[in-house]
Design a protein around this nucleic acid. Structure first.
Lengths: 211, 211
DNA sequence: ATCTGTGAACCGGTTCACAGCC
DNA sequence: GGCTGTGAACCGGTTCACAGAT
């Protein structure tokens, strides 16, 4: 894997994540080799797209043969930075925070929840799986101690920006927010927001304007 | 609002949904007029982008003045198809399904959960808020009766494609899936997938390759 | 003077098509 | 012959810049 050029499109990274899932399925089925065409069919793209996506990072295939499933899995994991586990804190122990804390899709990908926080005294001390909800006031000292670089925010919209500022000040460098509010973070902090109402609104739009 | 041209980019629709949120905040603060620049600043775009997005659907502003907050709210709601409520079914009463069933962001936008389904006997009969989990076997007859056009899937990956096929056969025209699995649906059915692990993987990538 | 509406220019992601290797 | 790797062409979304309305 050669060093990635200055900028890779997010859509490429998103597809790599998808390819990784398919490759793992292929591996589970005992398939040792795949072509870009097979990967494309599974993922709803084109073979040229698959080859282009991979070519940004190196030459992983063999001409005339395809890609070795195991090798490509290892390469994509390395590209995405998944060879070592990522400690993650979840902030907000409401319904969504609780669901995510026990979401297996995170742990199987190497995202380990090392802390869960809330400011509601009724929630502090509650356990979700193996993890106990702690007082949000402990956040700064815990982040200093455990050094998670990723925070998942499941707090109400009104509290979201304040919490972004706090975790950033404490040293977190990446944030995934489920609050339906626009957030700002410094340039060196990655911030992603998933807005479930917007997803439904896009569906409503397409239903309304279906030909 | 003139008829939308053949195709509008999804990014435009996503931004309209965002503008709508800001406009509602402006309205709550009693502001009666906004400029494209103000909307852009709230949403992290440019004023030209805001004007272009809106211009696909009509001329909603007044030159020299800006946009009337109330009018623009009404116009965007109409564009997105939010003037009337949308009945929605949630399929899968696990952690995520349960969280979504009680998510207020859906109901405040006019998405009303009219049914919740699971095939696990232990979950059937459970109540979430005002809604009782029903046997997944009732799905087809319930969809025929209540005619929800949107289904939210919170089932395990293995069950996801099968459930897509069932709800499509029953008449659902739009699907939002939280299963980390690739899904196929006919062309006339809108299908969106939210993959939370992929979101974290994009963050892991940016952390790994931060300059 | 100010701010919208929009054609034109620009830019970057996708697709094409073919050279290169197995 | 088959499939990868990649420059070049293409396409569509964003940005620019200015004409037009108040």
């Amino acid at each position: 894997m050669h060093l990635p050029p200055k900028h890779i499109a997010e859509s490429t990274i998103r597809r790599l994540s998808l390819y990784l899932r398919f490759l793992e399925e292929f591996e589970a089925r005992g398939q040792t080799t795949v072509s870009s065409g097979e990967l494309a069919r599974s993922g709803g793209t084109t073979s040229a797209q698959v080859r282009k996506d991979l070519s940004f990072f190196g030459s992983f295939g063999k001409r005339g043969l395809g890609y070795g499933v195991k090798d490509l899995i290892a390469s994509i994991r390395e590209i995405l930075g998944l060879e070592h586990p990522w400690p993650v804190v979840i902030i907000g122990a409401g319904k969504i925070g609780a669901a995510l804390a026990q979401y297996r899709g995170f742990s199987t990908r190497g995202f380990h929840v090392v802390g869960m926080y809330d400011s509601d005294p009724a929630k502090i001390g509650t356990m979700f799986g193996t993890i106990t909800v702690r007082d949000a006031r402990e956040l700064e000292q815990d982040i200093a101690a455990r050094a998670p670089r990723i925070a998942v925010l499941c707090v109400p919209s009104e509290a979201a920006q304040g919490m972004v500022d706090r975790v950033v000040a404490a040293g977190v460098k990446a944030i995934l927010s489920f609050a339906p509010a626009p957030l700002q973070a410094p340039d060196d902090v990655s911030l992603r927001a998933v807005n479930m109402a917007t997803e439904l609104e896009i569906l409503a739009y397409s239903l309304t304007h279906a030909k």
